[in-house]
Simulated assay, not measured.
Amino acid sequence: MMPLYRLFIVAILWVLTSQIALAKWDEEWDVTTNGKDELVYYYKINDLGQKLVLDKYVKRLIFIQPDRLYKRTIRLIKVDGQSIEVMSDPFSRFPEQTAITFENKDEVLKKLFLSKKIEVFVRYNRDEAVSVFQIK
């Protein structure tokens, strides 16, 4: 009976600490097209008005920049100073949005949830820029 009690306490502590880790990101709620399921997306907005959305359902990041004029490519992000090579794919219906995908999705998502600073290296044709997102 005692080991079951300990397991229960550990499970409660794990849930509480995981909620604290997720609380660093802002939450956005959405409903599926059939209206039956509620989805939670985590996001951060930087000083330039750019938005980084953590899509845990498809296991990707979505970089949103309010300008529709520039086609952007993202090949690298840094999570707390650690470089991660990524692939990017612009959304055809939403030109201001770019999907960022990575090979080892589960490992990278865990790093993103626990990160304090994310740097996104964005290339606009020949020009390069770095977008920084502080997660507190």
Results as ranks from 00 to 15, higher is better:
M2F: 12
M2E: 10
P3W: 03
L4N: 03
L4K: 03
L7C: 07
I9H: 10
I12L: 15
V15L: 12
L16P: 01
L16Q: 08
T17Q: 05
S18H: 09
S18D: 15
A21P: 00
A21E: 13
K24R: 13
W25T: 06
E27S: 14
D30N: 06
G35D: 11
G35C: 05
K36Q: 13
E38G: 10
L39W: 03
L39P: 01
Y41E: 07
Y41I: 07
Y41G: 09
Y42F: 14
K44L: 09
I45E: 15
I45M: 15
D47G: 05
D47I: 08
G49R: 00
G49W: 00
Q50Y: 03
K51I: 06
L52D: 04
L52I: 03
L52G: 02
V53E: 02
Y57I: 04
R60K: 10
L61H: 01
L61D: 00
F63M: 07
I64H: 03
D67T: 09
D67V: 05
Y70C: 13
I74C: 03
K78I: 04
D80I: 06
S83M: 04
F94S: 14
P95H: 10
P95Q: 07
E96P: 06
A99H: 02
I100S: 03
T101F: 08
T101M: 13
V108I: 12
L109M: 14
L109G: 01
K111H: 06
K117F: 09
I118L: 11
I118Y: 02
V122W: 01
A129V: 09
Q134S: 11
K136E: 15
K136W: 12
